[in-house]
């Protein structure tokens, strides 16, 4: 976690607390502070498991679940955790929910678990979750932390889905496993390879920044 990101989160939070109603805690994660497109956090799962829409969605939801639960627990224990051991405590809490998610996904679908592979366990080191615990949940009430986690979680899931949908459409000719093009569609194999993740993310970032720049000038 680099300092600029943390600072940004802080000012965003303090600014919004003063000026806006608490619904803003929810909205900010969706667009203005979108974890992938604006904060560029959690790149490892974003690039690695967004090769199909279903994988991206599952990964996004799993991360959102861990984010929500850890935000609740961190927020409710915020007066109990001494600051010297706070990072260790957060990691412990996050790791617990990741392990639980791992079992739950296995119980839901073995195939899905296989497709996501090691990246479920790697949610532990997703800096998005740790940064929300440190920058938000540890300083706010449970209610606000829930809103924040929901907003960030849905924003993350949305971003992953944007990547996954494009990559699956071009790389596999389908969406959610349903063929989208005529039979003899030529798949762009590069899109489901890791390189395709970088290309797609770059294109989305261009679109995102271009719209933002346009908004700012008008």
């Amino acid at each position: 976690m680099s300092n600029p990101i943390q600072d940004k989160g802080n000012t965003g939070f303090w600014g919004s607390l003063k000026d806006s109603p608490s619904t803003d805690e929810f909205i900010k994660g969706l667009w203005r502070d979108n974890p992938v497109f604006v904060q560029v956090l959690g790149m490892c799962p974003t690039l690695a498991v967004s090769n199909t829409a279903i994988n991206a969605l599952a990964m996004g939801l799993a991360t959102a679940f861990v984010l929500l639960m850890s935000n609740i627990l961190v927020s409710s224990l915020r007066n109990f955790i001494p600051k010297q051991v706070r990072i260790a405590s957060y990691i412990l809490i996050i790791a617990t929910f990741v392990t639980m998610t791992d079992y739950i996904i296995q119980a839901i679908s073995i195939d899905l678990h296989k497709a996501l592979g090691a990246f479920i366990s790697l949610i532990v080191v997703n800096c998005l979750i740790l940064s929300r615990a440190e920058a938000f949940a540890s300083k706010n009430t449970i209610g606000k932390s829930v809103l924040d986690a929901l907003g960030m979680g849905i924003g993350f899931t949305f971003a992953l889905f944007c990547l996954g949908a494009v990559r699956e459409l071009l790389g596999n000719g389908s969406l959610f496993g349903v063929p989208f093009f005529p039979d003899n569609f030529q798949e762009w194999i590069v899109m489901i390879l890791p390189a395709g993740g970088f290309f797609t993310l770059a294109i989305w970032l261009i679109i995102f920044n271009a719209t933002k720049a346009k908004k700012a000038t008008t």
Binding site: Q186, W188, I189, V190, M191, L193, A195
Partner: peptide, 10 residues
Amino acid sequence: AVLQAAFPVA
């Protein structure tokens, strides 16, 4: 290089 990765058979 991109073509090679995208359409390796063609």
